[in-house]
Amino acid sequence: MSGSVDRPRLTVEQYAREGSWVVAARGELDADSIAPLDRATQAAVAAVPTLVVDLGAVTFADSSALNLLLVLHHSTALRVAAPQPQLMRVLHVTGADRVLNIYPSTDHACAAQA
């Protein structure tokens, strides 16, 4: 028997900061792993006026992530923080970078004026 431990492919942390609610994802975002981020962001949409989704620690993202961001964009004042180059490329190729409010860091996203 191996001593390895199954670890979730995605973890989510949430906290209030500068009048925004931050949901920070860490790991891989795909159809099989996105549920924790989806639950956290949907709960936030119902409770807070400004949502920052921190993607700085996301190592992989597919169309599931893109879809979630676009749905959130239509549901709340969404700020996307620190998307990594792979996700930024997807956002650029699809034109989503022209629709979403994208910031280089969580600090910038939280400090931005509505």
Rank of each mutant, 00 (worst) to 15 (best):
L55M: 03
L55I: 04
L55V: 03
L55Q: 02
G56F: 01
G56W: 02
G56K: 01
G56L: 01
G56V: 02
A57M: 03
A57W: 02
A57N: 03
A57G: 01
V58P: 02
V58R: 00
V58H: 00
V58K: 00
T59I: 01
T59Q: 05
T59N: 01
T59H: 01
T59V: 08
F60I: 00
F60M: 00
F60Q: 00
A61K: 00
A61T: 04
A61N: 01
A61P: 05
A61W: 03
A61M: 08
A61C: 14
D62E: 05
D62S: 04
D62F: 03
D62K: 03
D62A: 03
D62L: 03
S63D: 09
S63K: 08
S63I: 08
S63T: 13
S64D: 12
S64W: 07
S64M: 08
S64F: 10
S64A: 15
S64I: 12
A65E: 12
A65R: 02
A65D: 13
A65F: 08
L66P: 13
L66W: 06
L66D: 10
L66F: 08
L66A: 07
L66Q: 10
N67D: 13
L68V: 07
L68D: 06
L68P: 03
L69W: 03
L69D: 04
L69T: 12
L69I: 11
L69Q: 03
L69F: 14
L70D: 06
L70V: 09
L70N: 07
L70P: 10
L70F: 11
L70K: 02
L70I: 12
V71S: 10
V71D: 07
V71P: 02
V71C: 07
V71G: 04
V71I: 15
L72T: 11
L72C: 11
L72M: 11
L72D: 09
L72P: 08
H73G: 05
H73D: 14
H73Q: 14
H73V: 08
H73N: 13
H74L: 09
H74P: 01
H74Q: 14
H74N: 14
H74I: 00
S75P: 11
S75G: 09
T76P: 14
T76H: 12
A77E: 15
L78F: 13
L78K: 05
L78V: 12
L78Y: 11
R79S: 10
R79I: 09
R79C: 07
R79D: 10
V80W: 05
V80S: 05
V80F: 07
A81E: 04
A81I: 09
A81G: 12
A81V: 10
A82L: 06
A82Q: 04
A82V: 07
A82G: 11
A82M: 07
A82K: 06
A82E: 10
P83F: 09
P83D: 15
P83Q: 13
P83S: 12
P83C: 12
Q84F: 06
Q84P: 09
Q84I: 06
Q84Y: 05
Q84K: 12
P85D: 13
Q86Y: 09
Q86P: 03
Q86L: 13
